[in-house]
Amino acid sequence: MEEFIAAWIARHGATRDRLLPLLHAMQEEAGHVDDAWVPGIARALNLSRADVHGVITFYHDFRRAPPGRHVVKLCRAESCQARGGAAIEASAARRLGVAMGETRGDGQVALEPVYCLGLCAIGPNALVDGRPVARIDADMLERIALEVAA
């Protein structure tokens, strides 16, 4: 990761406001931002390790452990709830065999909460490995389950 950081900094600069873009880039590259990389980030941007750690843990997006091979981000916000989101959340947890906010033991799939995807008239909605999916019902859930089993 040291090399990745150095190359990224060379292209984008080392000012403090680069911290979030750098973290996004690292997570894009590696799937998560490992605690072991914090000292390298801190050195590159001339920040304290505590400062970098504080930023990483503040934002829900940044993961400190590798995610599942597939990630289902299911919307939990009000408009999706109004369309039966809570029941779909319960079925999804059952069908995928993983609790909300967790990665399944075998690392195959993670079920993550998201609070609104801006698709609020066609819920319940999810991002399945980044692909938006709407009007999730039992059939759709089955298709998602098969997709992430692969």
């Binding site: 916000a77 009000e78 408009s79 999706c80 609070y115 609104c116 801006g118 698709l119 609020c120 008239a121």
Partner: peptide
């Protein structure tokens, strides 16, 4: 940042 549930005009 449009975080409000029920909104999507910005998007």
């Amino acid at each position: 940042d449009e975080g409000d549930s029920g909104t999507f005009a910005d998007r």
